[in-house]
Design a protein around this nucleic acid. Structure first.
Lengths: 156, 156
DNA sequence: TATGAAATTTCAAATGC
DNA sequence: GCATTTGAAATTTCATA
């Protein structure tokens, strides 16, 4: 189901449904129904409408990477050679599982990425071996997240 | 349930469970059971173990902000006055719903944030009114994400 | 869009291996 | 640690307003 409709109307009930499921994707439909005061079947129908509209792109279990030893998050600004085709660089970055986000950005950097690694040695390895070895990468600038204070989705 | 145990052993079945639920939090337990070849009850027991270990921090419906008109993502590096207590600035940033991430970082910036806004006007308003007005903020550097190519969690 | 009821599927605890 | 059973709960569909 991949129908995206930009002209969707979201009323208060839709918002309540989305808010509940955004904070816990396993919230039972009937519990939402009790909260907003309409039947479970109605919630279900609205959910299908919301899915069809494209506003819901999926659901995820969120895992705590620290438990797996991933304690170091870093951001890297990447300078690419003028001649380099950016999509090829992105293709290589997709192969590196530690790269969690990748953006084309305005400003000095061509590409900006967020990575998650186990420790500084791991970070150095990623930088020197995996990233610097990508064709067209001329230089990188790295800064480490010492502490993440906010992590959330947009407010509905 | 908030027990975090760093010394957890994750075997192949646990990984399969996590992978299934990380890509779709609504995956039925019995479907996972069929895939990995053990009973639903066993999956259920393992899930409880994983939750208890702290590796699972929650579940979320993921929404597509573009459908709601949020089309402009930007990153902002924030310089704080030396005298400024950073936690107070973060406290103010938490009140701005467009701020999706906030990190203390190494490097020139004291704080680094990711924001999502509707358009450039909205971005300018956030910068000039909401962010610059926070006590201690001396200067900001903004770059806009023209296109996000990767967005994922760490590979299990 | 909403509802209630029915049919189907899934959950989750108890028990034994 | 896993399987089977089983009553309870949730999901999904459908006829109808």
């Amino acid at each position: 189901m991949k129908v995206v409709n930009q002209n969707i109307e979201i009323d208060g009930i839709d918002k309540a449904i989305l808010r509940a499921l955004m904070s816990d994707a396993r919230t039972p439909i009937l519990e939402i129904a009790r909260q907003v005061g309409i039947s479970g079947a109605a919630i279900h129908q609205r959910l299908r409408k919301l899915e069809k509209s494209g506003i819901i792109t999926g659901s995820k279990f969120v895992i705590n990477p620290k438990v797996l030893g991933y304690t170091t998050m870093a951001f890297i600004g990447i300078y690419l050679d003028k001649a380099m085709s950016n999509p090829d660089a992105v293709k290589q970055l997709k192969k590196i599982p530690e790269v969690l986000e990748c953006h084309y950005t305005t400003g000095n950097w061509s590409i900006f990425i967020k990575i998650l690694c186990k420790d500084n040695e791991h970070l150095m390895h990623l930088l020197n071996k995996d990233i610097q070895s990508i064709e067209g990468v001329s230089r990188t600038e790295t800064f480490i997240s010492l502490n993440q204070q906010i992590d959330r989705q947009i407010k509905i």
